[in-house]
Design a protein around this nucleic acid. Structure first.
Lengths: 153, 153
DNA sequence: TGGAAATAAGGAAAATTGTTCCGTATGGTC
DNA sequence: GACCATACGGAACAATTTTCCTTATTTCCA
């Protein structure tokens, strides 16, 4: 059962994405409605899975995560068992912030956040000892120009 | 003025990352403390920039964003003016969820979320008409295996 | 080691916010 | 045009956040 969204729903989502700490009163005023409809719509969008989660975004640098790598992976193995183990390994490793299976030449891309280059090597060695991969290229981020989870509504 | 974090601070951050909707009472109980110290520490970490923002994460598919591309960019131009215009273009475009300047061969990587392949092409054409880039490779995501903003504390 | 100052904790009060309830309005259907 | 279903706005209630105050704990210096 999917949720059909109207203009008011979208306005509410914009508010929630911009600042998840606003009160219902503030949101209601911003979108030109009142508390009850705003509250009901948020609840429905939560239950319908449009809103996945509510979270706090932390500053990686302040917490000592100064290195960010994008990892491009090619593999020769494509059987179901190998893939299941590979996906599990990625999901279990907290350093992996993003993992996507790709179309084309390169099979997977990861975004990995670690303390430093040495910590990346530890991660890398651990990963390739768990599952065989054909070719790995690591791209080191020098500067995070932009980072957001916002969808353009 | 940086914030020095102790074990209790870290426990609180873990709770906030896991679920940004928990009440102070719940968090206090989970970390083995009471409301006031938890509240004071959250406030300080906010002011100190350790906590960057509080937000709601939405489901891209539910909202019609069914295509996700990682874009690898090489450029020949490296002067300050070009770079300033390029960064501004990236920050201004809401489709761009991530943008990093890289070390080595490839100069930039972007993560771009759009409705479909057609919308990506519109984005791409608009971008290269704004700023000259030498070489662009787009990697299309077939499956989002993992996506989180959590840092492993 | 003793003692004063600074810092952090816990509990309770006050203020704000979230949640429910209900009467009314609105829109769609036959 | 009447009925049903759905959504809205305002008020009442419940829960949470925020502040305040008192008590511990720690730190630092004599």
């Amino acid at each position: 059962m999917s949720v059909r969204l109207d203009e008011l729903d979208r306005k509410i989502l914009v508010q929630l994405q911009q600042d998840g700490g606003r009160s219902l009163d503030e949101i209601a005023k911003a979108v030109g409605s009142s508390k009850t409809p705003v509250w009901n719509r948020i609840r429905k969008m939560r239950e319908g899975g449009v809103i996945k989660q509510q979270t706090y975004v932390l500053d990686a640098d302040s917490l000592g995560f100064e290195a960010c790598f994008f990892v491009l992976i090619r593999t020769s193995e494509h059987d179901a068992d190998w893939q299941a183990r590979f996906l599990k390994a990625l999901r279990d490793r907290p350093e992996v912030q993003e993992a996507h299976r790709l179309a084309g030449d390169i099979d997977y891309i990861l975004k990995v956040r670690v303390e430093n280059a040495r910590a990346y090597d530890v991660f890398y060695q651990a990963l390739i000892s768990e599952v065989k991969v054909h070719n790995v290229t690591a791209l080191l981020s020098m500067e995070e120009i932009k980072s957001t989870t916002m969808l353009p509504l």
